[in-house]
Amino acid sequence: MAINIVVLIKQIVDIDQLKTDPNSGEPLIQNIPLRIENLSKNSIEAAVQLKEKNGGKVTGIIFGTEKANSAMKEAYAMGVDEGFIITGYKGNNPAYTASIISNKIKELGNVDCVILGNQSADSYTGLLPGLLSTELNMNLLGNAVSISEEGGRFKIKRVLDEKDEIISAEKPCVISVTQEINQPRLPPVLQIMAAGRKPINASAAGAGNFETPKIVSNIAPKSDRKRQLFEDMDKGVAEVAKAIRGEMK
C-alpha cells in the first residue's frame, strides 16, 4: 500500500558544539550553528525507508523559525518529498508545539502515519508522541526500533527493559522512534543540489494560549573534579591504584 507519511523535524542548536561559561555556567548559545535534532534525523530516515519499500509520499513538518530552510533542504536531500515550515517557534513548549503541528496534519488530511523521535536530543521531553496521538485520535506505537506496514496495519518492534515486543495497530498511527532504529543516510551531492531548488511551503503559527514555566536558572552543574592527568602510564597506574584502594577499605 502506498503510504502517506508525515515526519516531524526539529531544528536545534548544535548541542555538541555548545559550551558553558566556565565561571557562570551559562550556556553560550550565540553563534552556535543550527542543525537537525538527532532523533528527527532518525525519523526522516525511517520515513524515507518506509516509502522506498511501500511507495507513497513523505511530508516533512518543522515548527521552527525563519532559519529552518537549511534543515528542510537537508531533509529533501534525504528523500522528503514536500516540506512545510511553520514559523513562530520560541522554545520548548510541548503543548503549544503539539497543537500547531496537529492542526497542520489535520489540514493535510489523509495521513497514514506520523513519524517522530521518542525524545528530542536537546530538551529530552518526550511528550509529543502521546500529545499528538490524543489530539489526532491516532494509535500510538511508541519507541520503535523497526517499522513495517501490511494491509493498513503498522507493526513495530520496541525494546523494553525486560523484553522486546512486536506490536501493531490499525492506521492511522503516530510512531515514535529511538536512535537505534537506523543510521541516517548522508545524501549524495547531486541530491543536495536538487534539494536546494525545491520549493518549501512556509506559514506563520497562530498564537496559542499556553502557559510556560518560569525559568529559575539554566546552568552547567558544578564539577569539582581533580582532573589529574597522567601521560606516564606507570605513574598514573600507581596513583589510581592508591585512590581505588582508599575507597575499598
Binding site: 503543548a95 502521546g130 500529545l131 499528538l132
Partner: peptide, 24 residues
C-alpha cells in the same frame, strides 16, 4: 515515573488536562 510507557501516558494526559507538564 519516567519510562517509555510513562512518557507516552504523560503526553496523553497533557493533552486532556490543559496544564504545564514538566518532564524528566
Amino acid at each position: 515515573s519516567s519510562s517509555p510507557l510513562g512518557r507516552d501516558i504523560a503526553g496523553m494526559i497533557a493533552s486532556s488536562i490543559r496544564s504545564i507538564v514538566i518532564t524528566e
